[in-house]
Design a protein around this nucleic acid. Structure first.
Lengths: 207, 207, 207, 207
DNA sequence: GTATAAACGAGACGGTACGTCCAGTCTTGAT
DNA sequence: ATCAAGACTGGACGTACCGTCTCGTTTATAC
């Protein structure tokens, strides 16, 4: 996902006055932060000062764009977000698997870079930032999931009397448990498929 | 849950020399931290310095007991942890509901104090601390859940061919999704029951 | 005293290409600086940035003309310098009084604008600037004083065996002491006359 | 002249609470600043940050004692101030020479360390600081001078009808002119004597 | 009782980062 | 080429905490 200069701020309809902000610098900052994260620098040691040093940029240049570390992290995370999921559309089962699979890969990618995951955690300390992230990343996926389920009900793949919100949480939950509560593993290949099929098969004995 | 002086530290086998540590001071520190959290002070603004001020205690007195803010938080969280769940034992369904219900109440309690939730998040930044918390709080609940499911398989309440780890995640997941991803709500009464019953009833149409 | 554009800089013999520098802008800068000084803004708070803001001018426009704050100050001071002294020429005594009187008025004028006096002090921090100011302001007055004294020796108003440099310092000194060491006062009317007459009368009892 | 910890601040009658301030650190700061000055570091480049680095001290430690660079300079200057003048007491002439001679040596010493002189200038930018310096350094010397002159009038060495304040300025002035207006020189040996004798001999021809 | 010795509150200490401001330079579009 | 505007790197500002280190005082044993 790419974040453009204009994408975040106010659309500058008024004629540009003075030297315009450099997109190159913006990229350098985001990528510098990403690099620190990937190099395994503990989150607590990532200061604005250090980001500036890493990116070869003045501190003021960072503060001119973001009001602090946290806001910057939102954009860093956004830029690391995988592209939109492509749903096969063949069945609810396949769509759900595709959805979970993309979640799984994100979890893995983040884990491979070890800490993005924590940035996530960190962000929750400030509600405003969290809201921004929630709106731009989490909410879209959620509504996509609901849509898939709704179609499943129409198809007869899903019981009609179910609360879709709840079902969505049931589907997404297991992946989250493993990513959040047991960092470091267990997001093996085929997990998405196993979750969905287990759910669809039901938990009770078939008798 | 109460945390005793001896419970955490090194058992001082050698005869005690000099003035012993004051338990009252220990309580003052933990409760002072709790108070800050409950007063809605943003996590980032809770410094050791401020905790000391709030508790009317010297900084060294804190560092004598904990190696830093994070370690202290573990104990604060532990002390806020509800007492052990009591399982009715009447059926797997009832036990699972009891388990989820205790999770739900914890989520709500934390929400009422709004931020404990974030301490949780914060802690993940330091793996050591996280491990400590994981071992003392998360793991026990997890194995309790697995035990309940195992008994369910014996009873015939649960299919015998299921991966219990996965099922446990499926059961716990929805509650976590709501607590973590949608802070501020939707942990209504009866949620535990709805989750368990939805899962047991299965997602497919009954035809 | 007026400072012309050509007076300071390099005479641009080559035909002017592009837009010529605006004299109005130059005046605006100098007068803006003066205004800040007169408004009692502490010298340390007068930044190039602020001068630019006050004068409604870009920073580059200032740097295009002066290499920094200090050089600018020289011109500001020069522009505030009173016009050349007019000596009556009737006697050494009268000429010395005229000289001191002009010094006194300068001191008072500067005091009335409270800070020019300090610019003076500030300038000494950079030898180059000080030299420029010394050459254009202090040295001319000094040689004028020496000339007056020389004529006094010719007239018989002054002992022939005196070191004129020393006498000049003796004449000028008291005024300086009061202006520099006791800012804020004691440059009353008639002071010039009292100094000169006291010196000419001698300090010893007349017996 | 030595500046003690207690000398500047509030007399700490109240029992000392917490770790007391270190006099060694205090000395390190003042001497570090002095060193920078003596090494010819331009005054404008002497930042609190650099002083701290030089003295091997935290910035806060400096700000704990002085409110800023300027206040610190007062103490640095005070500590560089030569010890009190010793007057021979044999005659007004000899006493005045002793007084001027101490002034001259101070001027030279400062020159040798090249910039202390400018610190002086710098200080004038802030009236409060200047007042502090004036009271503790300048005023005492001034009243000492007046006292000497008063005794001179009693002895008959000085005309009884003279304004002593003015005479004092006349005596001190020439030395100041040379130190302030012509930095870099002309404070040769024997200058004090020449000034006093020239003044006492009178400027008019003896006829 | 009276040492002894650790704990205690307070706060100084060397550091590091904060977020802001200014120095000088550079880059726009417009004059 | 100049202008106003304003971005750029760099670095100092004065503040707040970090984790450690004295201080003087308090409080338990152990002698």
């Amino acid at each position: 996902m790419t974040v453009s200069l204009a994408g975040r701020g106010i659309t500058p309809q008024q004629p540009v006055r003075g030297r315009p902000r450099s997109e190159a610098v913006e990229r350098a900052i985001i990528e510098g932060t990403m690099k620190l994260l990937e190099d395994g620098v503990p989150l607590a040691e990532i200061s604005v000062e250090r980001i500036a040093r890493t990116a070869g940029v003045g501190k003021a240049t960072i503060y001119r764009r973001w009001s602090g570390k946290e806001e910057l992290f939102v954009d860093v995370l956004r830029s690391a977000e995988p592209d939109d999921v492509e749903l096969p559309g063949t069945s609810m089962r396949d769509d759900l698997i595709a959805l979970l699979e993309s979640l799984r890969r994100r979890g893995l990618a983040n884990r491979s870079s070890a800490i993005l995951h924590n940035v996530h955690a960190q962000m929750k300390s400030s509600p405003k930032i969290w809201a921004a992230y929630h709106n731009s990343v989490i909410a879209p996926r959620r509504s996509l999931g609901l849509e898939v389920l709704r179609r499943g009900q129409e198809n007869g793949e899903l019981r009609a009397d179910l609360d879709l919100e709840l079902v969505n949480d049931i589907v997404v939950g297991p992946m989250l448990v493993r990513a959040v509560l047991r960092p470091g593993g267990e997001l093996g290949e085929g997990l998405a498929e196993r979750i969905v099929d287990t759910l669809l098969a039901g938990l009770r004995p078939v008798n």
